[in-house]
Design a protein around this nucleic acid. Structure first.
Length: 561
RNA sequence: UGGGAUGUAGCCAAGCGGUAAGGCACCAGACUUUGACUCUGGCAGUCGCAAGUUCGAAUCUUGCCAUCCCAGCCA
């Protein structure tokens, strides 16, 4: 157990030192935990915490618990614990033990009594408003509660009666007796138990007093033998209190220690359960699993892979600086993963007909196509070709702009895998919109290749005789602004949602094998992007979600003009 | 006006007294049966600012500035 670890971030560096000879956990096993509150669905910010918690344990041959921090029955629900478990598994992590804070309620209660007996906790009858007043402000010290000096016996009696349900909700709390003048407000006699007549999703009505986070969390860690309690930087101020409870309720072995790191923030989205809930409740999105949501369920439905998410988090790194990661980095990692694993297929999203005038009526030819050029082991598949095809409206121009090398009158392009075709004419409707493009093919270019004559452009197509009409949902950023919460314009983030973040295409055409796929399958639609079959998808009624587009230097060039 | 943190490129982020890694984004080019992928090259004369210590400072010291967090019977 020497320091043979390549440390990749400051936490790993710290742990490596901790377990070295002379380190504070020398000879002990590294033990971490991921402690979600079951009050909502996990998002990609949680994925970072999961990677850090599980990843640190794994790196040092330690253990990582999954622990539901269910100390507030008013907000929590069993529905979320199942969803959280599922999301963690989907990300590819396995917990070593599964625990619930609520299982520790009896032990926590004993710890509270211990504090009372040590003269370190008291029952306070101040109202919530009064407690706030007595707490002081950021710059002024607080003042002692008039109930601060109750005798140990009275406190023990009152606390037991709180537990027994003799008092009204909000009438009394148990507080730690620390220092009302502390410059750290967290230390000004924090509330550690409150009365709540709410039914808990696991303990039912067994308890009517519930411990507060600051008291419960260090104890949960201590009870489970956690060594490294890794949490958000927001808890930095709470650390002295964490240590206080560990010390006063101990001894514990090992003694857990808390280390904070920066949460993940992403541009063009919001990242908190509270805000995401607002989007759901205002029907800005269709639900927690809407593909535009940064929730794990949303990302999964969008077509993101666990691998892409984990690589992304790995790339972002772990530090203590407040940071906002560019959404483009996340997209880069899905593209990278999907490029390797996604089978290619052809789909036309905005179809116009292409008629090959010199091709035999009714003839259907089969061509061989590679499943994934990045990975030849994925093999080949067949594509059927005929006289009438669909091509992308964007791939034809009556008057080509400079640099355009797709189809236009007189120009020859390659139909991927099939033939060279040369545009001869086109038809328009009364509004001047192109309806049909006519072309002739060169039989010599069978398979899409002619060594004697090269073409610059290659376009994708789908044969009209077997194309399957499909729904394709084109997703874009939920917010166009980098920081939707920047309210300097006076607009609430809910009203800033990008109205074009979902565009539903109902008359797309895809190759038959794409329509016949399972739900949640990943594909690259040639030249368009990565797409994934939706939860709603069936072979009879195919639905694809665009995960991310392909990079498009032509679009970029055209746009900049 | 109290306390706690953080400042390295447009965005992340290494760096731990010996002369600014890497990734994304961006720009240019090569290659290409995807205007994709891949590849090559470019992209911080200076690390928030100012003094100081040192042969030598992004790294140490001091001062200043900026930003973030904390006044739930939420977590």
């Amino acid at each position: 157990m020497d320091s043979e670890f390549v440390t990749t971030n400051f936490i790993h560096e710290m742990v490596a030192n901790d377990i070295k000879e002379g380190g504070r956990y020398y000879g002990k096993r590294v033990h971490t935990r991921f402690p979600p509150e079951p009050n909502g669905y996990l998002h990609i910010g949680h994925a970072k915490a999961i990677c850090v918690d599980f990843g640190t344990a794994e790196k040092f041959g330690g253990l990582c618990n999954l622990r539901f921090d269910d100390t507030n029955p008013e907000k929590e629900d069993e529905e979320y614990v199942e969803a959280i478990k599922e999301d963690i598994k989907w990300l590819g992590f396995k917990w070593d033990g599964i625990y619930y804070a609520s299982d520790y309620f009896p032990r926590m209660y004993e710890c509270a009594k211990k504090l009372i007996k040590k003269g370190l906790a008291y029952v306070c009858d101040l109202s919530p408003d009064e407690i706030r007043e007595y707490r002081g402000t950021l710059t002024e010290a607080g003042k002692n509660s008039p109930y601060r000096d109750r005798s140990i016996e009275e406190n023990l009696d009152l606390f037991e009666r709180m537990k027994n349900g003799e008092f009204e909700e909000g009438s009394r709390v148990l507080r730690a007796k620390i220092d009302m003048a502390s410059p750290n407000i967290v230390m000004r006699d924090p509330v550690i138990y409150r009365i709540l007549y709410a039914t808990h999703h696991r303990t039912g009505d067994e308890w009517c007093i519930y411990p507060m986070y600051d008291f419960a969390h260090p104890l949960e860690d201590a009870f489970e033998g956690i060594t490294h309690s890794l949490c958000d930087i927001g808890f930095k101020n709470n650390r002295p209190l964490y240590d206080w409870f560990i010390r006063e309720c101990g001894p514990f072995d090992p003694e857990p220690c808390q280390t904070e790191f920066a949460r993940l923030n992403l541009t063009h989205t919001v990242m908190s359960k509270r805000l995401l809930r607002i989007l759901v409740e205002n029907n800005v999105v269709s639900g927690w699993d809407d593909p535009r949501m940064p929730t794990l369920r949303g990302l999964r439905r969008r077509g993101y892979t666990p691998k892409a998410i984990r690589n992304f988090i790995e790339a972002v790194g772990v530090s203590t600086t407040l940071s906002v990661v560019d959404h483009a980095l996340l997209e880069h990692y899905v593209r990278e993963d999907l490029n390797r694993v996604a089978p290619r297929g052809m789909a036309v999203l905005d179809p116009i007909k292409l008629v090959i005038d010199n091709y035999e009526d009714g003839l259907v030819e089969e061509f061989e196509a590679e499943v994934n050029p990045e990975n030849p082991e994925m093999g080949k598949r067949k594509v059927e070709f005929s006289k009438v095809l669909y091509i992308e409206r964007e791939d034809f121009m009556i008057e080509p702009v400079k640099g355009y090398f797709r189809l236009y009158p007189g120009n020859e392009v390659r139909l991927k895998y099939a033939y060279y075709v040369k545009c001869t004419s086109y038809e328009t409707d009364e509004n001047g919109n192109v309806t049909v493009v006519h072309a002739t093919y060169d039989p010599e270019s069978r398979g899409g290749w002619l060594p004697t004559r090269k073409v610059k452009g290659t376009i994708h197509w789908v044969s009209a005789h077997n194309a399957v009409q499909s729904e394709v949902r084109l997703y874009d950023k939920l917010f166009l602004q980098e920081d939707p919460l920047d309210d300097s314009d006076g607009i609430d983030f809910v009203d800033k949602a990008n109205p074009d973040s979902l565009q539903v295409v109902t008359n797309a055409y895809v190759e038959p094998f794409l329509a016949n796929s399972e739900k949640n399958a990943h594909f690259q639609f040639l030249r368009l992007g990565y797409f994934s079959t939706d939860n709603d998808h069936t072979p009879e009624k195919p639905v694809f979600n665009r995960t991310v587009s392909l990079k498009d230097s032509w679009a970029k060039k055209a746009k900049s003009k």
